[in-house]
Simulated assay, not measured.
Amino acid sequence: MTLLSIIGFQLIVLFYNEENVRISYYSFVIALILMPVSRLVLGKASTFLMRIIGSLYLLVIAAFLIRGVTALLSSTDSISFYTPGLYQLISLLSIYLLTNLGNLGFVLLMKEKADHELIRLASYDDLTGTLNRRTFTEKANKYLTDYSKKGQPLSYLLFDIDNFKTINDTYGHHVGDQVLQDLTTRIKLHLGKEDLFVRYGGDEFGILIPGKDETDSNQMAEQIIQTLNGAISRSLPMTYTISLGVLTVFPNQYTQLETLYTTCDEALYNAKSNGRNGVFRGQIDVHNAVS
């Protein structure tokens, strides 16, 4: 766009070298080049700082559009930067302020982006994009407290990949990583915004589903099993399955996440003992939950 703008300006100089036309042309071109910055204001993921910086540049765009129209409709002297007067003073002061504010704004945006990246790296598993254990534990404990007050159920799913060690030994760890990524991508399609998806380590994962009873969690578990059962991926040389333990509780003030994990881990073990590629529901004992 910049190259075409330069070529267009040279054509104006060659064939219609009027100052007001030149001023109007480059004013419109600069406004057009800056137009993508409107995404800072209109983007759904825009932060408060991004909206401020975007609004600042929208004012600059509006100013150049007004200047371009003014250049076509008025005399050259009234809109030239090189003619001493009030317009020149206001224009140069505005350029100075906008340049400094713009530079400061982009430094702050870079810092904000770096801070978000650090938070992401501290909260999510780098390979699969799922929550790491520490962040999951913090969020899950808050869910246990909130849903204990609401008197509503929580369901917990724990699963791992059947014969994952054999996959790594046969095809290599690179393929094993691809399996983990394929697994999480497929499962995320079944999760809601409030669901917590964690990678504990290796091929062991957990999902905490707020507000879901036994029927709902059974249905989700079966959907996940069916989604992965024999699913063929172009990036993988083989298919894979998972075994899954599922548990539903109505938490109270004494319910511990570790108790849910232990109980669901036993259910997962039973699912594997039953031949793998299946679901086993665990039942938590009230006395164990209140410990």
Rank of each mutant, 00 (worst) to 15 (best):
265 D>K: 06
61 I>Q: 05
46 S>M: 14
89 L>F: 06
240 Y>W: 02
14 L>H: 14
130 T>N: 03
54 G>R: 07
224 I>E: 05
26 Y>E: 10
253 Q>P: 00
109 L>W: 07
192 G>P: 09
75 S>H: 01
225 I>S: 04
13 V>E: 15
183 L>G: 01
177 D>A: 00
202 G>D: 14
3 L>N: 09
137 T>K: 08
84 P>W: 13
12 I>W: 01
157 L>M: 02
133 R>C: 06
30 I>F: 13
155 S>I: 04
286 V>H: 04
54 G>W: 04
256 Q>S: 13
38 S>G: 06
103 N>Q: 06
273 S>Y: 06
251 P>H: 15
5 S>C: 13
18 E>W: 09
262 T>A: 12
110 M>H: 11
107 V>M: 11
161 I>D: 11
288 N>P: 03
209 I>S: 00
222 E>D: 06
251 P>R: 12
117 E>M: 03
260 L>H: 06
213 D>W: 10
75 S>M: 02
170 T>A: 06
60 V>P: 09
137 T>D: 01
137 T>L: 03
157 L>P: 00
20 N>G: 02
124 Y>G: 03
35 M>C: 07
93 L>K: 10
25 Y>H: 07
141 N>H: 10
106 F>H: 14
104 L>I: 15
14 L>R: 13
172 G>M: 03
159 F>L: 15
21 V>I: 02
22 R>T: 06
39 R>W: 13
190 H>V: 02
276 R>T: 01
129 G>I: 03
157 L>H: 00
167 I>A: 07
256 Q>D: 14
134 R>Q: 03
210 P>A: 00
275 G>R: 05
140 A>K: 11
174 H>V: 08
187 I>E: 02
77 D>Y: 12
264 C>R: 02
20 N>A: 07
163 N>I: 02
248 T>R: 01
11 L>E: 08
230 G>L: 00
13 V>K: 14
180 L>R: 01
165 K>G: 11
216 D>A: 15
70 T>W: 11
153 P>Y: 05
223 Q>P: 05
173 H>L: 04
30 I>H: 09
165 K>N: 13
43 G>D: 14
123 S>M: 15
39 R>A: 04
249 V>I: 08
